[in-house]
């Protein structure tokens, strides 16, 4: 079985925020959603998902409420806050910059070869 690529360090927060930007979800839902949207390429380590959510909560980028699911169970739903949206923007642009930079380096390296 080919090893799945690990999540780039530092990107988990961004992925969670991006996921929540579309729709409020509970923790399990977030994990599923990331997996699905990345076409099974990215798997969120469940052990690191919850500490990350706590971190976002503490910073006030997301807020959490207990709601009922479709199957009538109590689940904790996370919603993006205004501060979270701002944070997401910042992280996205930072990420864009990094990707572009990496891309440049890589294409440059290709030409020399």
């Amino acid at each position: 079985m080919p090893k799945k690529p690990e999540l780039l360090p530092g990107t988990l927060d961004m992925l969670i925020l991006k996921t929540l930007a579309r729709i409020p979800l509970h923790g399990y839902g977030i994990a599923l959603s990331i997996k699905r949207l990345s076409s099974d390429v990215l798997t969120v380590e469940e052990g690191s998902l919850y500490p990350a959510l706590q971190r976002l909560l503490v910073h006030g980028w997301v807020k959490a409420e207990w709601k009922m699911t479709e199957t009538n169970r109590r689940a904790r739903f996370y919603t993006l806050t205004a501060a979270g949206r701002k944070q997401l923007g910042a992280e996205l642009s930072q990420f864009e910059q990094m990707i572009t930079a990496i891309g440049r380096v890589l294409s440059d390296a290709n030409e020399e070869v």
């Binding site: 509970h26 923790g27 399990y28 469940e46 919850y50 706590q54 503490v58 959490a64 207990w66 169970r73 109590r74 689940a75 904790r76």
Partner: peptide, 22 residues
């Protein structure tokens, strides 16, 4: 972080239930 000090028991409860749900 300090702000969370007062809400300690609630945080604890929420986390427990959330993980159970997962």
């Amino acid at each position: 972080r300090v702000r969370t000090l007062g809400k300690r028991s609630r945080l604890e409860r929420d986390l427990e239930e959330e993980l159970q749900f997962h």
